[in-house]
């Protein structure tokens, strides 16, 4: 079975990338293939990258308060593209919004203070690496912004 492939995305204008990078490094050290989009990505670019890279899960980090706009948009774009990729997230997100987001289809929101191994475990338990040997030789890499 190939390694679990994860796309970590920073959508919108938010520049707070500490959490995204720490999570990316932790997932990489846990043996996953991590694609980090870099900052200031559109929802379209993130969805396109996720499909192109054939990832098993998308993790979005949003600390700007725009989560109620960005998560629904990414979910909608994935649906339009018929891409069945689970979306998880983290950042500065109030409890009420966490409930709403999980209801609309975001699989899990990891708030501040979450140990990275909790995220690793969640992904391992909920997202299986697909069997696609043709792609298993891909090395870790970072995508440049478009």
């Amino acid at each position: 079975m190939r390694k679990i492939r994860v796309l970590i995305g920073k959508p919108g204008l938010d520049g707070h990338d500490r959490g995204a990078k720490v999570v990316a490094a932790a997932l990489r050290d846990a043996g996953m293939e991590v694609i980090y989009t870099g900052l200031h990505q559109t929802c379209e670019a993130i969805v396109e990258a996720a499909i192109q890279e054939d990832v098993d899960v998308i993790g979005l980090s949003i600390l700007s308060g725009a989560h109620m706009t960005i998560f629904p948009r990414v979910l909608k774009l994935l649906k339009e593209r018929k891409a069945n990729i689970p979306v998880i997230g983290g950042g500065i997100i109030p409890q009420d919004d966490v409930k709403k987001l999980e209801k609309m289809g975001v699989k899990k929101i990891f708030g501040p203070g979450t140990p990275t191994n909790e995220i690793v475990e969640w992904i391992k338990n909920n997202v299986g690496g697909k069997n696609s040997p043709g792609q298993s030789t891909k090395s870790k890499k970072s995508r440049k912004q478009k």
């Binding site: 919108g12 204008l13 600390l63 700007s64 308060g65 725009a66 706009t69 960005i70």
Partner: peptide
Amino acid sequence: DFPTLYGRDSDDPFSHGEVGKC
């Protein structure tokens, strides 16, 4: 807010969802 920090107007497509937020 973020659009202002990046020199973008509130009606810029990139500003959608961010106006007045942080």
